[in-house]
């Protein structure tokens, strides 16, 4: 009886440690972060047969059916330029210029990796839809409160208190595909937070 109790305890503790350590490792790595450009992170082996088991597990949880990087590069930003976690109660300016790809887009996802509901049904802006400044650059406001111009709502926290932005580069230029770390990506500047 005493031995059986010990064996069950070992099994439970090992299961918690084993599965818990996987969660910690996968959370620490986001969706893959071998390459970082400012607040943006990406993995060079997403979707590829060279992906290691941890990358496959990350992709399965947060980016199932992602294409390999010759077709699409996915950058994800969980933080702003200052390194602070992106929060639904804060306002940000995403400032950049057209990106080296046939088509690009920036999309907001909640903590649960799904789109965040809002009255406007607006979740993203891309090369085809973003309004540009006179010099060709763009400014996208990401905030809980409606603003003029390009605005992506952060929602009311229904998908969690934090969010991430995903930047997709479909059919990236050859140089960009070869060296994603060399791409100039948009800045993410925090403006203010609701108290």
């Amino acid at each position: 009886m005493k031995l059986a109790f010990k064996l069950v305890t070992v099994l439970i503790v090992a299961l918690v440690l084993g599965a818990g350590s996987v969660i910690l490792v996968l959370r620490a790595g986001g969706l893959g972060n071998e390459v970082t450009v400012g607040p943006w992170e990406t993995s060079l082996v997403t979707g590829s047969s060279q992906a290691d088991p941890y990358t496959r597990a990350r992709v399965a949880i947060g980016g199932l059916l992602a294409l390999n990087r010759s077709e699409t590069i996915y950058f994800t930003a969980p933080r702003d330029d200052a390194g602070d976690t992106l929060r639904v109660s804060c306002s940000y300016k995403v400032i950049g210029s057209d990106l080296p790809a046939r088509w690009w887009s920036i999309t907001l996802y909640g903590e649960d990796h799904y789109l965040v509901s809002n009255l406007q049904d607006r979740y993203s802006f891309g090369g085809e839809t973003v309004a540009r400044e006179k010099d060709g650059s763009f400014v996208i406001t990401v905030s809980p409160d409606e603003t003029d111009g390009n605005w992506i709502p952060t929602g009311g926290g229904q998908n969690g208190d934090t969010f991430t932005l995903t930047l997709r580069l479909y059919n990236p230029d050859e140089r960009a595909a070869q060296n994603p770390g060399g791409i100039v990506l948009p800045r993410i500047a925090k403006e203010a937070c609701l108290s």
Binding site: A14, L15, G18, R56
Partner: peptide, 20 residues
């Protein structure tokens, strides 16, 4: 316990993509 936890860790990492 540590050895068994390592086994569970490896099984979880390899099994997650298939499960999802």
């Amino acid at each position: 316990t540590i050895a068994l936890a390592a086994v569970f860790h490896i099984l979880t990492v390899f099994g997650l993509p298939y499960g999802i």
